[in-house]
Amino acid sequence: MRVPGYWRNMPFLYRLAGWKCVHCGAFHNYKPVVCKRCRSREFAQIELPASGRLIAYTTVRSPPKEFAQVAPYAIGLIELDDGTRIISQLTDFREDELRDGARVEAVFRRIRVNGDQGIIEYGYKFRPALRRS
């Protein structure tokens, strides 16, 4: 639990907001000083689309201690509708819905709870899209 770090990263963790390089288009999920691909210093603030499709997935069964309570949990590689690829926990999936190409959408969830006294850290996860297109 590191509260200032959590606070600094809220834009991405809460609503997939980040910075896109004006020159090469690379997406940064943190506030960059220089572009990680082309070293440009010009960025546009954007929000990534909140829906996409599942490219690959797995289930973590022996999790790090922060995630003991939610084990087992699924992790997915997701291609968002604009082509950006992101890693996310998957939630509310029935086992038969975990498949390549499944439509998914972002939701807001508890990620780490930090016991009874610490801060509750929230962020995005992806679930099966309600409207399956």
């Binding site: 590191r2 770090g5 959590y6 600094r8 990263n9 991405f12 963790l13 999920n29 943190y30 490219i55 690959a56 997935y57 797995t58 973590v60 022996s62 999790p63 790090p64 922060e66 995630f67 939610v70 949990y73 992790i75 590689l77 890693i87 996310s88 926990q89 990620i111 780490r112 850290e121 962020g123």
Partner: peptide
């Protein structure tokens, strides 16, 4: 730590995704 770590995407999970691809 504020991306893969925060999401619980550990070393094995990342390897598993690569394995699938």
């Amino acid at each position: 730590s504020w991306y893969e770590g925060f999401m619980g995407a550990d070393f094995y999970a990342l390897n598993a995704l690569l394995y699938r691809l």
